[in-house]
Structure formats: C-alpha cells, structure tokens
C-alpha cells in the first residue's frame, strides 16, 4: 500500500518522503473516566500498553503517519474523563480535525456518556471540519459485554459517525483504526483547501543532528 505506521525512524531512512508535505492533524480523545483513552493514546503514539493512573488534566502525544502521498503528524490530546476537568475540555476539541468518542463495551453507562459528549461536540460542530469516530474499547472484555456491536454501529449510522471496536490492551484493530482515521481526515478535510495546516519543524530542530530529530518525531 505504500503506507507505514512506524513513525519517525523511517522518515529518516526514506529520503523520498522528505519531499512530501507534512500536515498537522489535531485529534482529541473524549469519553468517561476509565474507558481507556490514555491506553489508546499510548497505543497510537508508541504501540505500547501499560496500566496508567487517571489522567490529570490532559496529556499531549504525537504520532507520525505516512499515507501514500502525504505525511500526517497527529497531535493527540488525551483528555481526562473526570468531571472536574470538563470545564477545560472545550480547549481540546475546539478546532480538532478528529474526535474519538471512546466507551467501554463492558460498561453501558460509558456508552450513554459518549452520546452526551457527542451532543456537546455537535454544538461546536462545523460540518465537514471534524471526523467523529465512535470507538468501543476493551474489545478483549467481550465476555462481559454490555454494549453490542450492532448498538454501536447503529448509533454511528444514525449520527453519521465512523465506528470501530478495538482493544488497547491486546492492540487489536489499533493500527487499522489509526490508519482509517488518517485516511478519513485526509479525504474529508485535507482536500479542502486550508483544511489542514502544514507542519514545519522549527529552525531549532533543523539544526539538530539526524538522530535527534527522529527522537522528536517518535516520542514527543
């Protein structure tokens, strides 16, 4: 397919890609406390899984995705699910090109909560400017499932969302999801002129040696 997900390291090796444009994509993860937003973010950025403590405020991670004719730099805003931080959450979804509404398939309340987030998003929503993706996480807990695949899918169909069930724990569907998001964002928004802004390394970074800038791309 000519796509790869391995992030920065190959950016260096493949001189051809250097000539490609790099576009910035703001991606925000929303959902109840404990549905696995941080775990998804960690999978997206480093393809790792660790038990994390509750997010404080918001965490910012990045990931570079190479598509056939463009490179996308995903700026991932992993928000805290706790209610006390909700007043600051609009900061993060404002202007986002992709919003992931995450719920836990083994907890029905989180599915309901995701719909509340959707309403909130729709208040701010400018059609065509944000790709909204409903993500049923913890696919590995299928035996304790409280929300069926059909329910998720039909909500997505009704509201015009994309839908995926994934598992941050096992890594199932994670890369597929990330690639699909990248494609959709590029298709839906990137083609509109000025939909995505170009990402340029700051002059400070240009002065660094090669080894440094690959670190920047893969772990910041």
């Amino acid at each position: 397919m000519g796509e790869n997900l391995r992030g920065g390291a190959q950016l260096q090796n493949d001189t051809l890609r250097k000539s490609l444009r790099t576009l910035k994509v703001k991606l925000v993860l929303l959902g109840s406390s404990g549905v696995g937003k941080s775990s998804l973010a960690l999978r997206f950025s480093k393809d790792e899984f660790r038990r994390t403590s509750p997010t404080v405020g918001c965490a910012y991670l990045t990931r570079v995705v190479h598509l056939r004719n463009v490179t996308l730099r995903l700026e991932i805003w992993d928000t805290a699910g706790q209610e006390k931080y909700h007043s600051v959450t609009p900061l993060y979804y404002r202007g986002a090109q992709a919003a992931l509404l995450v719920y836990d398939i083994s907890k029905r309340e989180t599915f309901i909560r995701a719909q509340v987030w959707l309403k909130e998003l729709e208040k701010q929503y400018i059609p065509g400017s944000t790709v909204i993706w409903l993500v049923g996480n913890k696919g590995d807990l299928a035996t304790h499932r409280q929300v069926s695949v059909e329910e998720g899918q039909s909500l997505a169909n009704d509201r015009g969302l994309f839908f995926t069930e994934a598992s941050a724990l096992s890594g199932d569907q994670i890369n597929e999801l990330l690639l699909a998001i990248a494609h959709r964002v590029y298709e839906c928004i990137g083609v509109q002129q000025e939909g995505l802004s170009e990402w340029k390394e700051t002059p400070l970074v240009d002065l660094r040696n090669r080894d440094k800038s690959s670190r920047l791309a893969s772990c910041c």
Binding site: L42, S53, A59, Y60
Partner: peptide, 18 residues
Amino acid sequence: NLVGSSSSFREGEGWTPI
C-alpha cells in the same frame, strides 16, 4: 504530591489546571 502520585505524565506532556 501530584507529580509523585500519577504516572500519567510519563506518557506524554501533561497540561492541567492547578
């Protein structure tokens, strides 16, 4: 206490009201 109690700042850059 905040920094010592939470592992969440390990994974990315944290940004929080305090």
